[in-house]
């Protein structure tokens, strides 16, 4: 199986988020960046498992500047064979998808794997866009996948349940919890990653048609109102009369 795994870089969940320039920009200063968890734990690991099972190759694909190569190296240390980096800022989902599609179009991948969303802008956009550009089926929020020959059976999350589908390769899949178990890179992997190739390619032209004009912080909670554990009637009363939620 020839597999392409798209990985993005995102601020760590525990990082404090700050905005700059009159709240028109996200302030990257002091922010800890990580590989997007869904890409790392689920898409990449499931791809590696498939390769271990059936042979083939796992290529990482990333749109981002050279500074992001730490994230790519981590993916190589976990076990990907090689990587391709488009040397440009991923300025929008449309831009990113065009880069992925332009590269993947002629490469004959059996699957293009992604995470279900990036945890920064929580977009869930790139998978569907890329699939449309590649004219491939898109299976979103996969939680389990078995492959026999060129047919995959996939469980995907739907509201309050699961749907099981069957699809032939090639297709685009976005991965969620359940798809695989996180792997921690070991020393040997880290050493080998240093020698694995990262091919750098220029971006294809793609215009952005959305842009952020303003950021805001969420309104601070005014402080918790504590209720006497012996007086649950009071809590019910507050939920009904003050909060008006029941």
């Amino acid at each position: 199986m020839k597999l392409l795994v798209c990985v993005s870089q995102t601020p760590d969940t525990t990082t404090k988020i700050k905005f700059a320039n009159g709240d028109t920009e996200f302030d990257k200063n002091g922010v800890q960046f990580i590989m997007n968890p869904y890409d790392e734990w689920y898409a990449l690991v499931r791809a590696l498992e498939l390769k271990e099972q059936a042979g083939g190759s796992v290529t990482l694909f990333h749109v981002g500047p050279k500074t992001n190569e730490t994230v790519i190296r981590k993916g190589l240390a976990i076990g990907a064979d090689n990587a391709v980096r488009v040397d440009a800022e991923a300025s929008s989902a449309m831009f990113t998808s065009k880069q992925i599609a332009a590269y993947a179009k002629s490469e004959g991948y059996d699957m293009v794997l992604m995470g279900k969303e990036t945890i920064d802008y929580n977009g869930s956009e790139v998978g569907a866009m890329t699939a449309e550009m590649l004219e491939m089926p898109f299976i979103s929020y996969g939680t389990k996948m078995e492959v026999a020959g060129n047919t995959a059976t996939i469980d995907r999350d739907i509201e309050g349940g699961v749907e099981t589908i069957e699809v032939d390769t090639p297709f685009v899949l976005s991965c969620a919890k359940g798809m695989a178990e996180q792997r921690i890179p070991n020393m040997r992997g880290i050493m080998m990653a240093k020698r694995k190739p990262i091919t750098v390619i220029p971006a294809v032209d793609a215009a952005d048609n959305v842009k952020v004009t303003k950021y805001e912080y969420p309104a601070a909670k005014t402080g918790v109102k504590l209720i006497d554990p012996e007086n649950m009637e009071e809590l019910v009363n507050l939920l009904h009369n003050e909060a008006k939620v029941i």
């Binding site: 601020p11 969940t13 988020i17 905005f19 945890i119 920064d120 802008y121 929580n122 048609n209 959305v210 842009k211 952020v212 004009t213 303003k214 950021y215 805001e216 912080y217 969420p218």
Partner: peptide
């Protein structure tokens, strides 16, 4: 929309 897992909001303009 909410961004950064609820730690902020962003206003987007579609052109």
């Amino acid at each position: 929309k909410g961004v950064f897992s609820g730690k902020g909001f962003a206003t987007y303009e579609i052109s």
